[in-house]
């Protein structure tokens, strides 16, 4: 566990940079984590991020995001290139996903 200041807030993060406490999350924090991942967040990104936050405890998979009606799987990969479920979860301030699909 480590301390990290993101968007002016002192946060506990895991070794991989996931927030320990998702209730500390806000949109400014999301934008800053996204910037580290090389992503400029748009409204579409936030729609996906909100879906991910709402379903954080439901065993998220890429397939579920693809069926969310917000974005298809191809679009999800385009929004968060290089590992969409992991990167989107990190930006959404939830735990690292444990799904294999």
């Amino acid at each position: 566990m480590a301390q990290k200041t993101i968007a002016g807030v002192n946060l506990e993060v895991t070794e991989d940079g996931y927030l320990e406490d998702s209730t500390q999350w806000n949109e400014e924090i999301a934008k800053e984590i996204a910037k580290e991942e090389g992503i400029e967040l748009t409204d579409k990104h936030f729609e996906v991020i909100n879906f991910i936050r709402e379903n954080a405890d439901a065993g998220l998979t890429i397939r579920k995001v693809g069926k969310s009606g917000i974005v298809d799987i191809k679009g999800f990969y385009e929004l968060f290139p290089g590992g969409p479920l992991k990167i989107a979860s990190k930006i959404a301030g939830i735990k690292k996903p444990t799904s294999c699909v």
Partner: peptide, 10 residues
């Protein structure tokens, strides 16, 4: 559908 997912990811 699995093939859809894999190809959607490149």
């Amino acid at each position: 559908e699995f093939l859809d997912m894999i190809t959607a990811g490149g």
